[in-house]
Design a protein around this nucleic acid. Structure first.
Lengths: 228, 228
DNA sequence: TCGATAATTGTGGTATACCAGAGCCCACTG
DNA sequence: CAGTGGGCTCTGGTATACCACAATTATCGA
């Protein structure tokens, strides 16, 4: 038993606009906005009623979402969840490629050996070239892998900006990753990336990460048809 | 550069929150937030009075500014213009380097010959290695140069994100660029960058652009003392 | 019947009043 | 005189009522 009185920080400091923002963001990201029957329109008054709050904090949350590009507020028309066009998705991934490439570069220069080692430990099975058991698990690992590279770069802003971009791609990614051929190829790419970072080969690591991402962009550009 | 916020009164009829946002953003960017006597605190009620509007649209504008990182809203404490730390400035430039590097890469692959030629025409004097007449003009040209590279990449998101980052660095940049030695070096860098893009040398163009930016980051990290 | 126009309705935009927490100040007490 | 406690004030947070414009529908005239 501790001799100190430990207080579980009652910090209910979060304002309604914050909570509302989180809830809406989560809800929007979870839904499949590309389904043909997707309800893209939001009604302020109805939402405020559902959330049990007034329109004011709700609107402030919506303003934030609008600025992030998740939502489009058209004066006197309505509030609409934004459907990204294929072109926008591709641009998103291009920027992602730039960010993760820079992170990989920094990682080879600054990351500790232990941190880099953690990268390989994340893929006990994959590193031998095996195909992952199930797609869902792989998808999660995949996300985790890329986020780890971002973190190894040691540049917080790089991580934050990539996270924000990632929001928009999430619903696409899970659908695209499902193709078997791409999964095996992806595993191979990852192994090479890890090796390059371990070898502290800055240029190679950057190039592999960038090409891996741009390859996804090209794939989407060519094969995804349900956009636009 | 004034350390005080100067707010013109508006009485517009369209989208007060938009106009307010623009005015505040402009005002914050114009002031020297690193002056010792800078007034960093904003008062909602006082501002709304000066602008001739109510607090509601003003708050929505402030929420946007907060999300962009220009302002920090602390519940029941106040609203404060954010002073970036040196570390944050450096990270900003690192991300900038990644974005512009990618743009340069894309420019060598996709930009038309005419567009690339426009890059060189922007610097009739500089391309011969001469030092610019005055610092202010050079600073403007410098900004224009980098924004043009971003644009040549043909990726709109790259341009938008870089612009947003640029907001935060503007007040720093004008002060840093003033050092004579750096200006001459900068001109030389620019010439090399143009040549690389003209030669469609993707890797070289990317490297030069990246190193040019990271060089600024390193310079700020070592020599700027009025941050933190 | 068709078209133009006017009334209605529904949406986001704005103004305002009130709420609650954080700091500050001052009186009170030891 | 110093420390403490309470209340006053100032701040952002929230609720609500009203406004202006756009889309729609109803109505009237040709």
């Amino acid at each position: 038993m501790s001799s100190q009185l430990t207080i579980p920080t009652l910090q209910a400091n979060v304002s309604l606009k914050e909570k509302t923002y989180d809830i809406l963001k989560e809800a929007i990201c979870r839904m499949n906005i590309y389904a043909p029957d997707a309800q893209l329109r939001l009604d302020e008054r109805q939402l405020s009623e559902q959330l049990g709050i007034s329109r004011t904090p709700l609107r402030e949350a919506l303003v934030r979402l609008e600025q992030e590009g998740l939502v489009n507020i058209i004066p006197r028309r309505g509030i609409f969840i934004v459907r990204k066009t294929k072109r926008e998705i591709v641009e998103l991934i291009i920027v992602w490629a730039a960010l993760e490439g820079m992170a990989a570069r920094l990682a080879t220069q600054n990351a500790s050996a232990e941190d880099i080692a953690s990268l390989r430990k994340m893929f006990p099975a994959f590193s031998t070239g095996d195909q992952p058991a199930n797609i869902d698990e792989y998808s999660e690992r995949n996300i985790e892998f890329h986020q780890t590279i971002l973190r190894l770069g040691g540049c917080g802003l790089l991580v934050d900006m990539a996270d924000q971009l990632f929001l928009h791609v999430r619903s696409i990614r899970t659908q695209t990753i499902g193709e078997a051929d791409r999964a095996t190829r992806s595993v191979k790419d990852h192994r090479q990336i890890i090796e390059a970072i371990e070898a502290r080969d800055t240029d190679l690591a950057e190039r592999l990460v960038r090409e891996h991402a741009l390859d996804l962009a090209a794939h989407i550009d060519k094969n995804v048809s349900y956009l636009d």
